[in-house]
Write a protein that binds this DNA or RNA. Structure first.
Length: 425
RNA sequence: GUGGCCAUAGCUCAACUGGUAGAGCGCCUGACUGUGGAUCAGGUGGUCGCGGGUUCGAAUCCCGCUGGCCACCCCA
């Protein structure tokens, strides 16, 4: 390899060529489903006050403790590159008094997130998420809708081999009881669990449940759903009923707990079988206390985020085919002293909304055609000095190789018809 | 942050137990003086990730660094 002077920062990716088609499919599916359900886009800054994430995600979480890109700017402000998307959306909601627009409010976002982690497949330091948030409703209808949006979007991307996993972790009222029960249970098994679990026994008891080492002990542990208060239990029951009505398949997993502190009641995750270690392609839940925590009024909310790189990995694992990022409808080749005419025709075709590429390398005809073939041009217009004297140009179908001489005055319309035969415009 | 595996041309890979780099694909040119995708020929292309050490001699052995992958951790 050449001695490269500048290289990508560890854990970052250049997105180009072949992968672009996948990105477009993901982005288009997101926008399509968003509009289907009435979610409008919100674009927040990539930098935010560090404190925003400390307060929302949680000061004890790994994200805040060791994964944030934080720095002080020249004005001495403590700033972080956003590690996730929900907190910024909530911040924007409060700051812009969006409460005055009434409820519910539905928003979505897409963009880069940053976490200082050890990179591996499906995990970068700069990665991209898309997320949906629904503010204002306490009803399980909202939970069901947000999951419906997620599933619809995954299907829209061509994904099939995923499963939705749900759980309820209760609220401030009933979770303490559950935590007590868990502590009681694990206190009898403390000598059997791994070192990490011993440590988390005191710091974050819920996380013992998804330990990959002590699976059997976790499976036999008390379930949060058995400790829900009446309200939480009813919420969870109704959610499951609504999912049934929507025909959304799900699996209950009492060991599903999520790593962000702001969740309550409903938590869910979508796992894909083709991804190996990093198999969570999306995750979310209800966060009824977050808006208040960040200085707004008490407004219930529910949402999810999906990792775009992981979605693309999943699409590739399933063999989902995507259209090319760009379709070159027409390539203009020219021979002899006719560039000006060629230039004119190219522009005329573009005015008709065709994607047109034209030789600007002054290459000979065979090289021009070779290039046209490589970029996948559907039609090649050959502007030749000899033909032009007769007032005609050549239109060549690159698929069949068949070509016809066309009066130059009708050339544009002829080409448009030719392209239409091949693809829908 | 911890542990393991890996790193040769733009890509995929080769080079016996250390003897100073090769193939396929790609790209460019020609056969085809104005017709792509097939074929053939020629050409382009690497201080063997970087730095140091051992050795007469290192792509090959040792150490460090960087980057990738896998597991843990965490999460999307």
């Amino acid at each position: 390899m050449r001695d490269l002077k500048y290289t990508r920062i560890k854990g970052t990716l250049d997105i180009a060529d072949g992968d672009l088609g996948y990105w477009y499919v993901v982005e288009n599916a997101t926008k399509k489903v968003a509009s289907l359900y009435g979610y409008t886009e919100i674009r927040t800054p990539i930098i935010e006050p560090t404190e925003l994430f400390v307060r929302s995600v949680g000061s004890d979480t790994d994200i805040v403790q060791k994964e944030m890109y934080s720095f002080e700017d020249k004005g001495g402000r403590k700033i972080s590159l956003r590690p996730e998307g929900t907190a910024p959306v909530v911040r924007a909601f409060i700051e812009n008094s969006m409460i005055n627009k009434g409820f519910p409010q539905r928003m979505f976002y897409m963009g880069p997130m940053f976490r200082y982690e050890r990179p591996q497949k499906g995990r970068q330091r700069q990665f991209h998420q898309l997320g949906f948030e629904l503010f204002g409703s306490e009803s399980p209808l909202a939970d069901a809708e947000i999951m419906a949006v997620l599933v619809k979007m995954l299907r829209e991307m061509g994904l099939m081999k995923f499963k939705l996993v749900i759980n309820s972790i209760g609220c401030e009222k009933c979770r303490p009881n559950y935590k007590r029960a868990l502590k009681e249970y694990y206190s009898h098994h403390l000598d059997e669990v791994c070192d990490d679990c011993k440590r988390r026994y005191n710091t974050n008891i819920l996380r013992l449940l998804d330990c990959k080492v002590d699976v059997e002990i976790a499976k036999a542990a008390p379930k949060s759903v058995d400790y829900l208060c009446d309200e939480c239990a009813e919420h969870y029951q109704r959610l499951k009923r609504y999912l049934g009505i929507l025909g959304i398949e799900y699996e209950e997993d009492h060991r599903l707990v999520r790593g962000l502190d702001y969740y309550n009641r409903t938590v869910f995750e979508v796992r894909h079988e083709g991804l190996g270690g990093q198999d969570a392609i999306a995750g979310g839940g209800r966060y009824d206390g977050l808006i208040e925590e960040l200085g707004g009024p008490h407004i219930p909310a529910v949402g999810f985020a999906a990792g775009i790189e992981r979605l693309i990995l999943a699409m590739k694992a399933e063999g989902v085919e995507v259209p090319p990022a760009i379709v070159h409808h027409v390539y203009i080749a020219h021979i002899g002293d006719v560039v000006e005419k060629a230039f004119e025709i190219a522009e005329d075709l573009r005015r008709k909304n065709l994607t047109v590429d034209m030789d600007v390398m002054d290459r000979k005809l065979s090289a021009q055609l070779k290039h046209a073939d490589r970029i996948g041009a559907l039609i090649v217009v050959i502007v030749g000095e000899n033909e032009l004297k007769k007032g005609v140009i050549i239109v060549k179908d690159m698929e069949t190789g068949e070509q016809s001489e066309v009066d130059e005055d009708f050339a544009v319309d002829f080409v448009i018809d030719k392209v239409r035969e091949k693809i829908q415009l």
